[in-house]
């Protein structure tokens, strides 16, 4: 795993922080590999809001046609997808 991906996980977690606070959760409640949608942390709309905010902050867009939808429902998967998009 590149350092960039570690940084990106932190960026994803920072973007997720307000949502976790609203739900009374802490970062420790959410594992890097836990599905944010299956667990109920995010619904599909909130996931898109999160991704949109990250795209804007990082200045890059994800190619949804090339990404398995399930892959971008975890902190780890989102960081990896953004790392790939930034490297492209």
């Amino acid at each position: 795993m590149s350092l960039n991906e570690v940084t990106l996980r932190e960026r994803v977690r920072a973007a997720l922080a307000p949502r976790l606070a609203e739900m009374g959760l802490t970062q420790a409640d959410v594992g890097d590999g836990m599905s944010l949608t299956q667990s109920g942390v995010l619904d599909s709309f909130a996931l898109m809001e999160l991704i949109g905010g990250l795209e804007q902050a990082l200045g890059v867009e994800l190619d949804f046609e090339a990404i398995e939808p399930e892959r971008i429902t975890t902190v780890k998967g989102l960081a990896s997808a953004f790392a790939q998009a930034l490297a492209a």
Binding site: M23, G24, L25, M34, S35, S39, G40, V41
Partner: peptide
Amino acid sequence: ALLPMLGKLH
């Protein structure tokens, strides 16, 4: 799907 967040979100 619920068990990891049982007692927290569900």
